[in-house]
Design a binder for these strands. Structure first.
Lengths: 221, 221
DNA sequence: CGCTAACCTAGAACAAGTTTCAGACTTGAT
DNA sequence: ATCAAGTCTGAAACTTGTTCTAGGTTAGCG
């Protein structure tokens, strides 16, 4: 909780080969344990043992369980993005393409519900100390969705729509994972949210001054 | 973790007066501790002490910290719903009224960000063992939103829109609470999601068979 | 080679959520 | 009033995330 020195500003010091290797083993162990058993099954001692590193070392690489799982998600998202790039969606308009992409991702997660559980629960439970990493995941997700739209130059409304779609994606996934929504409902809600992409711009003069770049300026650092 | 016998099917056995009183003290302590310090500050030992009950008793009333915080949220939502009923929103169309209602709720939460943190993090982190309680919160939230629309007889699309709005509400709140979104962004995203309410129906024959009642039928029990 | 700083390991220790247990107290029915 | 069942208390124990420490290893460098 203490938020130790983590100069992860943009570039951690470059890792040696052995270190890259360790990091990979840790992420692999995390993915594996998450795959059976979900969030609760990812126990730091077990991750350390499975990865063949000491507990202290695990904590040097990932300062908390949440950091570890968010990094695992980043890892998985990279695979996903690469896969999707090879098979772009074929829908007629942007909304259809986004919905198709997300449903494809959803079917992939259905095959690994425990892994999905671990990653998404970590992502949404993360507090300020994980802001940077969560933000990275968010950017990656946004990139995937924007890729799917095929839009070169989205309007601020569309960016807001993308955020709403992301929110819906995470939240509906959680709802499904904890057995409170059917798959049909997940699909319906994702398609509903995706309709926002195609919406014509609306111009109430007082409104949206919160365009894309409105990151929280100071945060807590 | 074990999911002990909790016959909370629909009606716990009616509590005696002393028991109601204890329950109230516990919720009060929880609210108070959450108000200072958020999720992490709600420590079960401290709640028990502040409420003047033994730890074991606390766990008899609320089988986990998550259950406790979700119940706290239910409590707060009741107040909110009552308050809102006294001052209905004044927007022109349903979307405006919903957005106004949610922004009003959001301003209330701004005054107690720690409490909001504790409740919302618990709500979205909850796993299957808390399904019932989370579902109750969800129903209550849906009721608040539907009240705001003023719609007597919402279409399935509108119900899906309401769910998307709820997802957005929770998720954007988390994003704000962990310092990754500005208030302007929260407002923009809520307004964006609310536009779905006013959308004309769309009729792709293959689509939404996941109307309102599609609760997961069996769950994991 | 020999030094030094950074890194790693094993293991203990600590913190907070959760469980357990023996005994005291309440309650309701006889 | 008395008994049985259920509840509450206080305290210890257990689990898992996290931190700390002492000593061994590695990597770069003179």
């Amino acid at each position: 909780m203490t938020g130790r020195a983590r100069p992860a500003g943009a570039d951690a010091p470059p890792l040696t080969e052995r270190q890259e290797e360790r990091r990979r083993r840790i992420l692999h162990a995390s993915t594996h344990l998450a795959g059976r058993g979900g969030f609760d099954a990812v126990q730091m001692r077990e991750v350390a043992e499975a990865a063949g590193v000491a507990l202290g070392t695990l904590y040097r690489y990932f300062p908390s369980k949440i950091h570890l799982l968010v990094a695992t998600m980043q890892d998985q998202l990279q695979h996903l993005h690469a896969t999707l790039a090879r098979h772009p969606p074929g829908g007629a308009d942007p909304a259809d393409r986004v919905a198709e992409t997300l449903m494809r991702a959803f079917r992939a997660l259905q095959r690994e519900p425990h892994l999905a559980d671990a990653m998404v629960r970590a992502l949404i439970f993360a507090d300020r100390s994980v802001s940077q990493e969560v933000d990275a995941v968010s950017r990656q997700t946004t990139a995937i969705i924007l890729d799917a739209t095929g839009l070169a130059d989205p309007t601020p409304q569309q960016l807001s729509a993308v955020r709403v779609i992301e929110h819906t994606w995470h939240s509906t996934l959680i709802t499904w994972l904890s057995g409170r929504a059917s798959i049909a409902q997940v699909r319906a809600d994702i398609e509903t949210a995706c309709r926002l992409i195609d919406l014509p711009a609306e111009g109430p003069p007082g409104g949206e001054d919160a365009g894309g770049a409105a990151r929280s300026p100071s945060g807590a650092r």
